[in-house]
Amino acid sequence: MTPSASVLLLTTLTGFGYGLLAWLGVFGAARGLPQQPWFGPLAIGFALAFASAGLLASTLHLGRPERAWRAFSQWRSSWLSREGVAAVLTYLPALAFAAFWWFDGPGAGTTLVAGLAAGAMGMITVACTAMIYASLKPVRHWNNAHTLPDYLLFALYSGALLLMLALALGGGDLKGAALLAAVLGLLGLVAKLAYWRHVDHAAPLATLGSAIGIRGATARPLDKPHFTQNYILREMGFQVARKHATRLRKIVIVCAFLAPTLLALAAAFGLWPAAMAFVAVILAACGLLAERWLFFAQAVHVAALYYGHEV
């Protein structure tokens, strides 16, 4: 599948944002956050800024963004619609969380409940996003048991990194967040490796013989319908060179997971925590963008069979 910038931004930025929101809720409930009145609203704003940037980016992907509002209507069947609804709904507890923090105080029951609710809604939004891909039957790289947990895990991981940075900047104690991030980073790495193992070995969805209805035969394309490009090839015929993909996978392993984990550990043990957190977030952001790029670019659509691609 052709990786489009807007979708890459959407999925990574909302991961950071909603991940942070989730941890703010949890850490808030566990009283693990600085208790200054400005910290909550600022951190929540920070989280919503990430998520909103991602959501905004995603509307750029629409052919008719002015009609985007229509996307809320089909929540009964469409994960994309559900994502939209969930994203909008998330603003309510999130804004309430900030407001209660400011007015009722960080420790108030209302704040606590709103925080947990906002976190949960954020993760539901992430889950909806994941399900958009996980539910697409024609793409076996997405339509598998890894996609949903991976999205959630990566969101929590990137959220933890962000929380670590927020705590460093907000003068809080980042040790817990940093250790959490390191653990999630390692888990993320394992999950990603497992995912790659899966997609590299899973059976193709269909054969060209079955795609053209000639049972029991092997088929080879002779001529394409049209000689030059077309929508299907542009959108679904994207192919990454194996060499390129291997290199990118290494970058993902190091940048997205290993390096930020090490940096988080360093921060946890007090080694320039703010700087470490900052670099960890930047590295992870780059690494996760690469991870997402691969998630799209390496995904093959079964329709590409018709053009002789392997699926």
């Binding site: 599948m1 992907h61 629409l62 052919g63 008719r64 963004p65 009609r67 985007a68 229509r70 996307a71 469409s78 994309l80 958009i132 697409l136 039957k137 024609p138 793409v139 969805l205 269909a206 795609a211 077309n230 929508y231 299907i232 959108e235 679904m236 659509h301 079964v302 329709a303 590409a304 018709y306």
Partner: peptide
């Protein structure tokens, strides 16, 4: 009249049967 051009339906079709109108930005 109500398609937003998100292209998701074309991704959901295993047969490559849907095509995007780049001029009108709809499927």
């Amino acid at each position: 009249d109500i398609c937003i051009g998100c292209k998701l339906c074309s991704w959901a079709c295993p047969y490559g049967a849907r095509e995007f109108d780049e001029d009108e930005s709809i499927m």
